[in-house]
């Protein structure tokens, strides 16, 4: 019970803050709560398949296979796969991190994990279609063309900036989940 309370400490704290806001400024509090309820519904709707897929991936795909296609010696093949998987995903950015953890557990190269996160964050296919219809094809295409090298550069800078030990810690941390 105490362990559970400790884990949800920050959640309870912010929940308290939201309720206090409700008392001080009712319309603002209601608005905050309604957005939260909305995001909660979004989470309940989108998150389950992500985690089920993640579980299936973890159980069925052998580490050797993942390493062959996306591991340290996967070269351009791994980069392209990371882009495709990230772009095909649906769901908010916070859904990408648990998937990234399973990738690391399976021995996917660190820079490919970062490319996957970059692609999930900004080159998702359904989002692109939506962006093109609201803001115009030129806008969406320009952003896509800058984002592809941008994601690669960010992944490269981050993976060369991070010490080997730090990467090892992150990987061993990921294998616990």
């Amino acid at each position: 019970m105490i362990k559970l309370l400790k884990r949800y400490k920050i959640f309870l704290l912010i929940l308290g803050a939201t309720l206090i806001l409700m008392l001080i400024n009712r319309p603002l509090g209601i608005k905050a709560l309604s957005v939260t309820v909305y995001s909660f519904k979004e989470m309940i709707l989108i998150i389950p398949p992500i985690f089920v897929l993640l579980g299936l991936l973890d159980i069925w795909i052998p580490r050797e296979t993942m390493m062959k296609y996306m591991g340290d010696n996967s070269g351009i093949k791994g980069i392209i796969l990371a882009f495709i998987i990230g772009s095909a995903a649906a769901g908010p950015l916070y859904g990408a991190f648990p998937v990234a953890a399973v990738f690391m557990k399976k021995g996917v190269k660190f820079s490919n994990v970062l490319i996957f996160i970059g692609a999930w964050s900004t080159t998702k296919v359904p989002m692109f279609l939506f962006e093109a219809s609201s803001l115009g094809l030129t806008f969406a295409l320009t952003r896509l063309f800058i984002n592809i090298p941008g994601i690669l550069i960010i992944a490269w800078i981050l993976s060369s900036m991070t010490k080997k030990e730090t990467i090892e810690t992150i990987y061993s941390n990921a294998s616990k989940f």
């Binding site: 939201t18 709560l33 957005v35 995001s39 909660f40 993640l54 299936l56 648990p98």
Partner: peptide, 24 residues
């Protein structure tokens, strides 16, 4: 799948509450 979800649930809930507060 359930374990991975349960593991990150507290953080997910924090994010959702923060989104509500910020968007208000």
């Amino acid at each position: 799948a359930w374990k991975a979800f349960e593991h990150i649930l507290p953080e997910f809930l924090v994010v959702i509450l923060l989104v509500g507060l910020l968007l208000a």
